[in-house]
């Protein structure tokens, strides 16, 4: 049994049928990459799992229990962490307060404000600053730290490298590897293919709301046909 088991979900925005029968799995201690061109439904898949846009049909099981009908805050409290697209830091909260909101589920574990500051020392220096005053890289650290505060067992990361300088992207890669070693399951939506291939243990390619490839990311490194057809590169 997989930690996260998405079975044949169909998700709509109003009348637009975005996910047309997607199934995927994620396991503890691994990174699962979701790849594909813009607008194919990767973010919608993340939103379906966290409950922002619940699937109309299909199943989402987390740790063996159905979660597709639960409200988002219940899903989060069961151990699903979210690093959303665009980071969505609370601008009128300080760094410290942003982390405190992340800790609302009150799940015990290795992550506290103190251990998050050890992972990202820059956040300690900025702890009294408001979210709206941070640089892009600092916001990304905060978005990850905020999600870790709940001691999740599954971390959903939607385009974490977006808008970051190459040096910061390399740090992000190292951070993801460290998190993976702690046993965390990571589902990673990423446009930056080298980053995704460097950290992913398994990859899905989504095209027009369907999974069109599932397998070893190593194949994507070598198989140019698959890359050009589904990723456009």
């Amino acid at each position: 049994m997989s930690l996260l088991d998405v079975v044949d979900i169909h998700t709509y925005y109003e009348h637009s049928h975005v996910l047309q029968g997607v199934s995927m799995q994620a396991e503890s201690g691994t990174v699962t990459a979701l790849l594909g061109r813009n607008g194919v439904g990767k973010t919608t898949l993340i939103r379906s799992v966290i409950g922002f846009t619940p699937p109309r049909t299909g199943r989402v099981a987390f740790a063996g229990e159905a979660i597709e009908k639960l409200p988002s805050h219940e899903i989060a409290r069961r151990g699903v962490g979210l690093v959303p697209q665009g980071r969505r830091i609370f601008p009128s909260l300080t760094v410290r307060e942003n982390l405190a909101v992340g800790g609302v589920p009150g799940r015990p574990g290795r992550w506290t404000a103190e251990t998050v500051y050890e992972l990202f020392p820059r956040l300690r220096e900025r702890s009294g600053n408001y979210g709206g005053q941070l640089s892009g890289g600092e916001q990304q650290m905060l978005a990850i730290g905020r999600a870790l505060m709940a001691n999740p067992v599954l971390l959903l990361m939607d385009e974490p490298s977006e808008g970051l300088a190459p040096l910061i992207v390399r740090e992000l890669e190292a951070t993801m590897s460290r998190l993976k070693e702690t046993g965390l399951a990571i589902v990673l939506v990423e446009q930056n293919l080298p980053l995704a291939l460097a950290v992913a243990d398994t990859a899905y390619i989504i095209s027009k709301g369907r999974v069109v490839f599932h397998g070893d990311p190593e194949i994507l490194r070598t198989d140019h046909a698959v890359r050009t057809t589904f990723l456009g590169i």
């Binding site: 805050h73 601008p91 909101v101």
Partner: peptide, 22 residues
């Protein structure tokens, strides 16, 4: 903490829910 949660929800209600805030 209630005030922090209220301000967070005014900023971005959906995100607050996604972090486990009722």
């Amino acid at each position: 903490m209630l005030g922090v949660i209220i301000r967070a929800s005014v900023d971005d209600e959906e995100m607050a829910r996604g972090l486990g805030v009722d």
